[in-house]
């Protein structure tokens, strides 16, 4: 049966039977939720709810791996790491959705003990009920990534063994890829001499995103790092934007995020590459976007 036929039948059936099957409802979810508001936690909840609720992404008994950006020895105000409230809220949501365990881990650029503590993410995620742990080199596995450019690389097996992966990047300026959001966030799931990937960073981002394929991406744009990325420093490098973007299409999420910096997808080679590969949509006008304030 073709999809269109199925939809027709389902629609017909629902009219006849007078019920609204859940399959139908799922098709009506927006592609992107862009939620604006004062509370990082509320807008995160609202964004996930707009997409159909956490149960759409997390099943009962799942082990969920959250990939926050805990890369730098910076405080939340400096906007170099994902907002701790956003991370904490997602942990809560996953547990509410029936997840057996929610894990939070990132391989940072500065020592993990410092970035975990000073970003505020370790404490907020732990408080929400997550297992927070440091990257463990014994869990690195050389994996066949089968990308266009990266054929194999060392990956933390926690990401491979998890039932679901949710990506929670922060939106920042970056001198090489121009922006670092969801697709760049995957470098933190790698071991090895990952700095060498910078020689072809756009291809690396595309390959890694296609490999990890998160079931949901929640882009934290509560604070945008607009200068001196990717770690900033001064508070003047930060712009308060009070927004999160959520979606299943990570290319669309990054495309939306780029607009906050007034950067078009044509200016970002990694989005162009991903679009050519059919990994996602860069034409926002083709998407159903739900924008709301809470």
């Amino acid at each position: 049966m073709k999809r269109r036929d199925f939809l027709k039948n389902a629609a017909l059936g629902s009219i006849i039977l007078g019920i609204n099957p859940s399959m139908m409802a799922q098709q009506n979810f927006p592609d992107l939720a862009v939620i604006h508001g004062d509370s990082p936690s509320k807008i995160t909840r609202e964004a996930v709810a707009s997409l159909g609720g956490i149960k759409r992404f997390v099943s009962k008994g799942d082990v969920v791996m959250l990939k926050a950006n805990i890369g730098w020895d910076r405080t939340p105000e400096q906007a170099a790491c994902t907002n701790p409230e956003v991370v904490g809220t997602l942990v809560e949501l996953c547990l509410e959705g029936g997840a057996k365990e929610v894990k939070v881990m990132d391989n940072p650029c500065n020592p993990a003990r410092r970035t975990y503590a000073r970003s505020g993410i370790a404490s907020s995620a732990k408080k929400a009920g997550a297992t927070v742990f440091y990257p463990n080199k014994y869990r690195l596995r050389k994996m066949m990534l089968n990308g266009e450019w990266i054929k194999e690389w060392e990956v933390y097996s926690d990401f491979i063994e998890a039932d679901k992966i949710i990506n929670i990047p922060i939106a920042k300026i970056h001198s090489l890829s121009k922006l670092t959001m969801g697709m760049k966030n995957w470098l933190g799931a790698l071991g090895g001499n990952r700095n060498q990937l910078h020689q072809n960073i756009n291809a690396a981002m595309v390959d890694l995103s296609a490999f990890f394929k998160p079931c949901l991406t929640v882009l934290d744009a509560y604070r945008l790092l607009i200068r001196n990325g990717p770690q900033g420093g001064r508070l003047s490098d930060v712009r308060i934007y009070k927004t999160v973007v959520a979606g299943t299409d990570y290319v669309a999420v990054d495309t939306m995020g780029a607009t906050f910096f007034s950067i078009k997808s044509e200016e970002l080679p990694f989005l162009q590459l991903a679009s050519q590969n059919g990994d996602g949509e860069v034409h926002l006008e083709k998407l159903r976007i739900e924008k709301r304030k809470v």
């Binding site: 090489l176 700095n195 770690q231 490098d237």
Partner: peptide, 13 residues
Amino acid sequence: PCIVCEEHCPVSP
């Protein structure tokens, strides 16, 4: 391309 040193530089600017 390689901007690893610049990316890690902690000073702002």
